[in-house]
């Protein structure tokens, strides 16, 4: 089974959730899972998807997809500058800083 890349509504069929899917999702989230954890989470994720399957089993003919639980649109602010944070405070939160920038390990091949 492939993990659907689409928006809500295109959820995967739970029956087919495989260990390989969990390995894939864990890699995307940069989680280093042990064999035991993979086993555990495959079962847990399957039960979450089973719950979603209960909803999918309903007859939803004529029900419009829900973009948001609140019946509200156009929540906006004016284009007016508000104060930013002090840089010293911001950089003090980072594990590593160089030249007033956040220093991070090199990451290859993931830029969008």
């Amino acid at each position: 089974m492939t993990v659907e890349n689409g928006p809500a509504g295109a959820h995967p069929s739970t029956a087919a959730l495989s260990r390989a899917d969990v390995v894939h999702v864990a890699r995307l989230a940069r989680l280093d899972l042990s064999e035991d954890e993979l086993e555990l989470f495959t079962g847990q994720l399957a039960s979450v998807l089973d719950y979603a399957a209960d909803v999918a089993a309903l007859d939803l003919t004529g029900v419009r997809p829900t973009a948001h639980p609140l019946p509200v649109v156009n929540v906006l602010r004016d284009d007016v500058v508000a104060p930013s944070l002090e840089r010293d405070i911001v950089l003090a939160m980072a594990p590593s800083v160089e030249d007033d920038r956040f220093s991070v390990p090199r990451i290859v091949g993931e830029e969008p």
């Binding site: 890349n5 809500a8 973009a67 948001h68 649109v73 929540v75």
Partner: peptide, 19 residues
């Protein structure tokens, strides 16, 4: 094969825009 898997899902912190 290495293509990104972006896992799009609706942004729960923003309501729709309907001008």
């Amino acid at each position: 094969e290495e293509a990104n898997d972006y896992r799009y899902f609706p942004e729960p912190d923003l309501v729709p825009l309907a001008p």
